[in-house]
Design a protein around this nucleic acid. Structure first.
Length: 413
RNA sequence: GGAGGGGUCGCAUAGUGGUCUAGUGCGGGCGCCUGCUAAGCGCUUACCCUGGGAAACUGGGGUCGAGGGUUCAAAUCCCUCCCCCUCCGCCA
């Protein structure tokens, strides 16, 4: 959420940001509600002040005036409540402002490829897509996944599920041991407030699963509970930056992309992900973003899979982000670059929603922190990349060196 | 799921309709005093919104788990919800 005061004083900047994002947030209505709100507040505060003075005295004529005050205060309070909830809802739907370094673009085609690393392997046979390799080896079972849960579900079996588990452990170990992250095991179901804090609600409700009886929501990413770990807290001086890493399952309806990517395990309703998350001081967040990207890329390097880094343009930037890098791994079987990570600096946008602050020193006033999130990495796509990059002519898969200690085998066959 | 108890300033507590402008202790900060460590004394101690001011600063409102309600007046009474504790039931 943007600061209302900022919107009031920098309306043109906000308007331009919305245009650049091709968003339609209703800034005009916000501005007029804000004016109306402050007018009414001035009146109601004057009335409350009089009531306060009156309440100290007792007597019949002050009781008479008191009744009048009570009634008119109530009318104004009701109006204010209505304005407030409308304003709150609108504010929650305004996207974050892209940084100046973010390229302005019309669509994802305007994202900029910053670097491409690693030589795509030369095959002396035609590389197969993972769904063929996986099915032949019996490590991915699409039919039974659909039998259990319907379309976009699959079952990993045997060394397939072991491969995913190995990747998770490899990533968690690397981030905790080499990159300084602190591991957390989190709830996969969270309260509505958490999703508001992380910016998934109210705007993106249609991509979420929810238990109506308890009003608990399944997390679409660990970013949601991680953001909310420090909700309504004031972090003490000297504690920042905090780095978290967490493995969770993620649940998404993927309604918006129905019909897209239906083949294989690239896009399911349930998938696993290792997520990196940082709480930082405002001055450091961009440096921390670069480091986070490098932490994600380190996985690609160690797995020895070709990858590229993209800087997202304003049209493709996610709602809460001021600046985002995507990392893609090359998948020679389906001949496409797979998005395995998205690293974003959300600035104080989520911190304002979730009320996450820190004190620079013991004496100073609380200030909003900056939050950053990045996949480190998204599992099923890394599984795809391993399968397709390490496939062999006989249909088997050789296991990447760094995974061999986790897999206990050198070849999946 | 059933029965009961509870949520007050960083922590611990007092407060059952007006004297609460929320008291006290601890902890924190500032200062004074003291020829060592210590003790003592004084002051201070949250956050949000909004108005005025170039600024230092200053006026007003709100917040006692959250939100409503009753009342001239609510930390205090009523309703809904959230969270914590104890016992019972169930359970990996």
């Amino acid at each position: 959420m943007l600061d209302l005061k900022f919107i009031r004083e920098n309306t043109d900047i906000v308007r331009q940001a919305i245009v650049n994002r091709h968003d339609k947030a209703p800034i005009d209505e916000i501005i007029s509600l804000d004016v109306a709100k402050r007018q009414k507040m001035a009146i109601v505060e004057r009335l409350r002040c009089e009531r306060k003075g009156l309440a100290k005295k007792q007597g019949t004529e002050s009781a008479e005036r008191g009744r009048e005050l009570r009634d008119s205060i109530k009318i104004f309070e009701d109006e204010l409540r209505e304005i407030d909830s409308r304003l709150e809802d609108l504010l929650l739907r305004v996207p974050n402002i892209p940084q100046d370094s973010v390229p302005i673009g019309k669509s994802e085609d305007d994202n900029i490829i910053i670097s491409t690393c690693g030589e795509p392997r030369k095959f002396d046979f035609k590389p197969a897509p993972h769904w063929e390799i996986g099915e032949k080896l019996g490590i991915i079972d699409f039919e039974r996944g659909v039998k259990l849960s319907g379309t976009r579900f699959y079952v990993l079996k045997g060394l397939g599920s072991r491969l995913q588990r190995s990747l998770i452990n490899f990533m968690l170990n690397l981030h905790t041991e080499d990159h300084g992250y602190y591991e957390a095991y989190l709830p996969y179901m969270v309260k509505k407030e958490c999703l508001i804090g992380s910016s998934n609600l109210p705007k993106f409700a249609d991509n979420l699963y929810r238990d109506i009886e308890e009003d608990l929501w399944l997390v679409p990413t660990a970013e949601v509970p991680l953001t909310n770990l420090h909700r309504d807290e004031v972090i003490l001086p000297g504690v920042l930056p905090i780095y978290y890493v967490a493995y969770t399952a993620c649940f998404r309806r993927e309604k918006m992309s129905a019909g897209k990517d239906t083949r294989g395990i690239k896009r399911g309703h349930q998938f696993d992900k290792v997520e990196m998350y940082k709480f930082t001081e405002p001055g450091n967040s961009n440096d921390e973003l670069e480091r986070m990207v490098d932490n994600a890329v380190d996985i690609c390097r160690k797995l020895e899979i070709p990858y590229r880094i993209k800087k997202l343009c304003t049209a493709d930037l996610s709602f809460a982000s001021t600046k985002t890098y995507d990392i893609e791994m090359w998948a020679p079987g389906c001949s496409e670059w797979l998005e395995v990570s998205s690293c974003s600096n959300c600035g104080d946008f989520q911190a304002r929603r979730a009320n996450i602050r820190y004190r620079p020193t013991l004496e100073s006033k609380p200030q909003l922190v900056h939050t950053l999130n990045g996949s480190g990495l998204a599992l099923p796509r890394v599984v795809i990349a391993v399968i397709e990059n390490y496939q062999q002519a006989d249909g088997s898969i050789s296991v990447p060196k760094v995974l061999q200690p986790y897999m206990d085998v050198k070849v999946i066959k």
